[in-house]
Design a protein around this nucleic acid. Structure first.
Lengths: 338, 338
DNA sequence: TCGGACTACGTCAACGTTGACGTAATAGGT
DNA sequence: ACCTATTACGTCAACGTTGACGTAGTCCGA
């Protein structure tokens, strides 16, 4: 407490080795438990002690070892975010939302990609569980939710995005795509379009069917074509549709990438967008504004989707009963393609 | 070992609680240490014991607690990947490369976004260090590498992508953008373009200057305009350039998004691409193929960049001396814009 | 038949932290 | 002056795992 407390254990301040509670305690002359109390601001220490501990922490560059802390508290302050793919404009933005919301709550985010492969998803979940994550946010594998249910059953708080799973430890977050479809259809009709077609997703797990179902119910005599959700597939499907001489003047696509393919196919066939056919996409990825013509689309606020998932996850973790599913609104962005 | 080893401690098989080495050991009738040996395949056990341990592990659903393991081995089997932004076509693909390479090596990836803010980068690195990551891969903040050097100095193996940092604990991975520029310039000249311009990045930290410097040295009397690396800024810069009546028939842009803005500006001014002006971008993001006209660009293999970073990180971690910097080749992708 | 090597275990402590609990000193009320 | 609270600590064990080391039993060669 006098001026000579600096030379004490000079070796401890070598920055190469990481300091522990013990090192700090020794330097200050208190017990590690007291240092811990200061670090966690638990109270039960004098302000003088606090000051000296804080100084020592600075001098030694002490950083709490979260692994040790987690081991005893059973809280790791990590969440896993699991997506089927990442090199796609949709998921990174959701990831951004998850990451930022997690960060602001003191959580660190693991990111894993399953490539849509069930065995990879299983491996990933297994590994995440071993790492003691506090929660899981995922776009589950289309066909099989059993693994997810299993982990949730083992007590892992889970948020499922854009899918449905009824389980006390699982909360669902989704965007209101039914409403999105209705916005698109209404918009096309307002534009005077009377024969509507839809480019639906070929792989049709439960969740992807929602858009198609809504479209069919709103447009009973509409054309529905299925294709994989890629640019090329969208191009091909549209080209075939045009070649078959099917008559339609309005097209709604499952996502923007397919819509872009459709527009290219329409133009290549000598028709014009929106002159002959109006096109509406879904997602509002960044590219959509840059296309020629700019793509009218259903905007999904992906960052908010991610943030909402984190928020629900926290509620799930901290409460006994699962919070209700939450549905985010979508909106129509009108550009030149319609 | 007779048939009555099933009823023993039936309560232990409740799936709700996670089993530990002790639980498995008790069920088999050996010590936890032996179970640990089987789990880690260390040897020192009979094949009969191995069998029974493995069975018990399955029945109890035992999963090793990586936190406890890390605490003692001082290896967490996690890496952090830190990027300035994620809602940009470039970084997710690098992330994909990092993630896949990490996964294949038994590592799990933390992902953090710094939004280009130095204080966020610091916070993130601090937190990652607390989580005991085995290594760090990052696109460092443009202006300031001190933080990175500090963490590396504390013994954290670090891989810096597309930047330079001379430190025994840091390895650099980059793509050969100098060569990329030379490919672009040569290509434009082969197309008969004689007056070349470049859209450079306004914010010019050391690493971003490389393309500009190479361009200037190859095209001594070329025009160089700086602007932020966004679509709108690229549009504006190009529009101004055209309005100033500067004569150029070939344009190389810092990245594809700027190039897309440039193309739009050129077309809006009544000129044609590539009729009047050829445009070459850089990155080959997915959008580039979908633009009209398709964008000629310098392809950077982003997944490989990420995979290479992981590979270097492992070398760095497992050896005494830092491996040399590695430079990935780039290639020219010719489309309709040139 | 003995010694050395090897096999197949077990024991104990430690990693860095926090929960539970104990306790000396001081303050405050009557 | 005495009892009770409160403050400011300290002690000890535990979290689940692995490193270091010990040890009975077996095998094999001389």
């Amino acid at each position: 407490m006098t001026s000579d407390d600096k030379p004490i254990s000079a070796a401890a301040s070598i920055p190469g080795q990481k300091a522990t509670l013990h090192d700090v305690a020794e330097r200050v002359g208190v017990s590690p438990r007291t240092v811990s109390r200061v670090v966690n601001d638990e109270g039960g220490f004098s302000s003088a002690t606090r000051e000296r501990v804080l100084n020592a922490i600075n001098e030694l560059g002490y950083r709490p070892n979260l692994l040790a802390r987690s081991l005893i508290t059973n809280r790791s302050n990590t969440v896993a975010f699991v997506v089927p793919v990442i090199d796609d404009p949709f998921f990174p933005e959701v990831a951004q939302g998850v990451q930022a919301a997690a960060r602001d709550r003191g959580l660190t985010m693991f990111l894993a990609v399953t490539e849509g492969r069930l065995e990879l998803q299983r491996q990933v979940l297994e590994r995440m569980a071993s790492h003691g994550i506090d929660g899981l946010i995922l776009f589950p594998h289309a066909e099989d939710l059993d693994d997810v249910a299993r982990f949730a059953g083992q007590g892992l708080p889970t948020v499922v995005i854009d899918d449905a799973l009824d389980h006390p430890n699982v909360c669902v977050v989704r965007s209101d795509l039914e409403h999105g479809v209705s916005l698109a259809v209404d918009h096309l009709r307002e534009r005077g379009r009377t024969s509507l077609a839809m480019l639906a997703n070929e792989a049709s797990p439960r969740r992807k069917l929602r858009r198609e179902t809504t479209f069919r119910s709103m447009v009973p005599n509409g054309i529905v074509v299925k294709s994989p959700p890629t640019f090329e597939a969208g191009y091909r499907a549209t080209a075939e549709l045009l070649a078959r001489e099917e008559r339609f003047d309005g097209l709604f696509a499952f996502n923007d990438v397919m819509a872009a393919g459709a527009i290219t196919a329409i133009i290549d066939s000598g028709r014009s967008v929106p002159g002959d056919i109006s096109v509406v996409g879904c997602d509002d990825i960044e590219m959509s504004a840059l296309l020629t013509p700019g793509l009218t689309t259903i905007r999904i606020d992906r960052e908010r989707l991610g943030a909402e998932a984190v928020s629900r996850l926290i509620q799930l973790r901290d409460s006994v009963t699962a919070p209700p599913a939450s549905t985010l609104t979508v909106s129509l962005v009108v550009r030149e393609s319609s």
